[in-house]
Amino acid sequence: MINNDPIIELQGLYTRFGSHVIHKNINLNIYQGEILSLVGSSGSGKTTLLRQMLSLEIPAQGSVKILGHSTYDCDLELLRSLRNRSGVLFQQGALFSALNVYDNIALPMRELHCLTEEMIRDLVMLKLDMVEVEAQHANKMPAELSGGMIKRVALARALALDPELLFLDEPTAGLDPPLSESFVKLIQTLRKELTLTIIMVTHDLDTLAALSTRVAVLADQRLVAVGELPDIIKIDHPFIKEFFLGERGRNVLRNVLALP
């Protein structure tokens, strides 16, 4: 059931921290089934924009609509159901350090109060299997896990309620190349199995080139470009030139887009 209404709609967004302006008039529509990557130099407010989509922060001006509802003035019941339909992978994983891996993933399912414990067990094991974490790690505490493992478990938790919307904040930061490659593969497989819309903040050009269907570039406090990667790199903007067409960017893009 793919329809053309945007899943996320940002309109005329302004963000200020004190007198410091982060975003000026940002308009962005995100549609079902796409993987949108947000890129920008550090401090350009990518994570802030992500947090605003999650209604963790409220912009100074403008509106954010998720699945057609504005999250700032809707009732609690609706907000809860909207939140159950989206999963978030935080940069540091944000696993609950007081709970073991199993309970971390089971927590959002238990909070629904409609699943039986047997179903939860099957679901948790399925999610762990999906992110390729061995069953024996289920009883470990987050403090005992390595960085890559934390990311995987956090992804399993983000996917716990089979969300339609997945937010990834720097999914491959801090992972070694083979791990980030398998992470990319994992996301690709997931996308085949589940109807997922993914919004991703990343610095990693490899991940960006491999996954994203569209790219949004944040620079000079506004969205300077939104579109598919081949179109983006043709745009004449200092940040885009630097980010995509630097020495490193060229190497990556050469493989993906057959660039000279």
């Binding site: 094991m125 299997d129 069953a135």
Partner: peptide
């Protein structure tokens, strides 16, 4: 594919 996953699902520790 989903059911194939379930078929080879491992028991919870």
């Amino acid at each position: 594919r989903l059911f194939a996953h379930l078929e080879k699902a491992r028991p919870a520790p």
